[in-house]
Design a protein around this nucleic acid. Structure first.
Lengths: 200, 200, 200, 200
DNA sequence: AAATAACCGAGACGGTACGTCAAGTCTTGAG
DNA sequence: CTCAAGACTTGACGTACCGTCTCGGTTATTT
């Protein structure tokens, strides 16, 4: 939530030469590319500068450090992609949402989780910002579920879904270390989510 | 895999002066202390050397790098503390296990998660070792649950518990960023775990 | 060479808004102040801009670089202060001139010498300009000596004085690193200058 | 006067790996080469590191900054080269010494003078060290003169020579900006030095 | 009066170098 | 062969200035 301005970028004043928005794009693009190539730890500000063609000072003028930069880059990339409208039955809706979420987390949020771990210790506010990004998708999902299957759900079921599904997917990817393939999604939907949602 | 030879320690040779086991303890103690003080990212090998009184050489002779060292330190600290025997009812057993797990993860595993993120990118084998440590507790918990409430559980319920409970606790601590207090544990037990375990 | 157009200022065009002479003063004043405060090396264009309230552009429009700027500032400050008319005897005249020169060099020219060293390597023309400033005082002194004591001097004595006195004073301040106090001036006059001037 | 250890180098301890004296030589050689090539101002620590093949940290472990480094390099190069024994007459002795000094200052000490200007402002102790180096030659010269022409000199003449000759040469090179050619040396000897030395 | 042209502040920009920190390797002397 | 100490290379850090380049806006002269 918060204002529309947030996200770590420093305020560009009115006076003086305005910031070159092309630099913004180049910096964030380079950050994203490097993030997926080498991961959060191995990503260096110097590499971002080199790849983007921007000077280090230009980056530091916008973001105070690596964590903030990565957060901004991730936020820009994933503009809360709305989960696609799904099929008929409750199972179909839940399955569709879960599969989308599994893909989304596996592909995009892993890099951000590294930034989150670093930021947690150093800057509580920054950690909060990253959590906001991470949970943006979860909230979008909640809404989507309510919209599509409101009548078939017990009250609070959507919230429960938004709590349980991302947790299990993140755990799968990070701790268990195995991919969220179709079989896992099936298991997740049939053995865990649907029982919870129906019963509640 | 799963041999008795622990996680990352390099083989000590037979000839020459034997390794000083006091150095082992000092190194791991210092690592643990620094890990909780400053977190995984800010923990430096140089600080471990300084704090433990060991030379950097002595550390690198045992562990090839920071991630391995931290893994060894964490492994030593948490010798799969057996969850304390619990009360009567199924709910009491589950609640007891969950509360113990929440405490255990919050206090101990957070540092290891940082190491896991780093290690994942750099060394798949190392990531595997860390995952093994992380899941040691989960497995111990599964066993404990089966022992204490075997007759009241559906087959596979213990496995399910070991899959869901840690996932939600980790998610709570890392992504949501709020503490696993008593209220959360209650919610977790009554709204999620018990329904799943009973029904399955 | 030796034109009336001063040291390093770029030609202001005829068309358009004329240059604000108040900016000139502010820039040179700030330069002089910083020169005496922090010395030539530590003096930065950015500090001059900040102190004078002028934009960097405004400074660079006038002077191509630090050395030129400092030269202009020093030139403005020391408008060849005429040595004060002295007493009766030859010794009184020489002593008066030497004391003035010692004060002048110690207080004013030290900063310029730093600029001179830098400029020498980078821009021979600039070095020439600085030398011109430095020797302006020496020439003025020559004239003064001739005016006041022409009949008592051998031919060429004034030139000799202008060659020897500044050299010894600069050497004293920079290389020896001790102040040009009264005792030193006495020594310089009685043991070196007067013997040379009388005999020649 | 000055222990044998001094000169800005930090104390190498007894324990641990000893400093690589090859690094010392490489660093000082590179410093000298760059000093003559580009001058004091343009000499960068990074260039010294690159040229010498030493890491920047290796340089900073030995010298706290550029001025100290240059001072050490210059000190090593000019081990108070004794002026060569000269001819017969007093004039021949003085001329020989003066010519040697003119060469010595022109070729070697100019770089150090830049370091001196910088160091003066920043570190009085460092400035003192540089002055010591600069005056080492002057003192050697005094001794040489006394040795070679003691009987023909008034008392204090050698000191006077060591005061006047370097001052005029430095002034010629730096302030006047013209070379110390044979004609200048002749002028210096015949018109200034000999009259002073004979009369005193 | 309008157009033109230079001025001025502010500050973004690509660079270069700074001085520091930590990583991981290597080299001593002592045990 | 181990250990403590510390030198060494490498690479990145975040900062300071450099000199150049837009911006919006302000005087002046020229049409």
């Amino acid at each position: 939530m918060g204002t529309s301005e947030s996200g770590g970028m420093t305020r560009p004043s009115v006076l003086g030469r305005p910031r070159d928005s092309g630099r913004d794009l180049a910096i964030l693009d380079a950050t994203l590319a490097l993030l997926t190539e080498v991961g959060y730890e191995q990503l260096s500000m110097e590499a971002v500068a080199g790849r983007s063609g921007a000077a280090k000072t230009t980056i530091y003028r916008r973001y105070p450090g690596k964590a903030t930069l990565v957060a901004a880059a991730v936020e820009r990339r994933a503009p809360a992609k709305p989960p696609q409208p799904a099929g008929e039955s409750l199972r179909e809706v839940v399955h569709s949402l879960t599969a989308w979420l599994a893909r989304s987390i596996s592909e995009q949020d892993v890099g951000l989780l590294g930034a989150l771990f670093t930021g947690m210790r150093n800057d509580a506010q920054l950690a909060q910002a990253m959590r906001r990004i991470l949970r943006r998708d979860e909230n979008a999902m909640t809404d989507s579920l309510v919209q599509q299957a409101a009548e078939r759900l017990a009250p609070g079921a959507a919230t429960l879904f938004a709590e349980v599904a991302p947790a299990l997917i993140v755990h799968r990817v990070v701790v268990v270390g195995e991919p969220c393939d179709a079989a896992f999604v099936e298991h997740l939907v049939d053995d865990i989510l649907l029982p919870l949602l129906r019963r509640t």
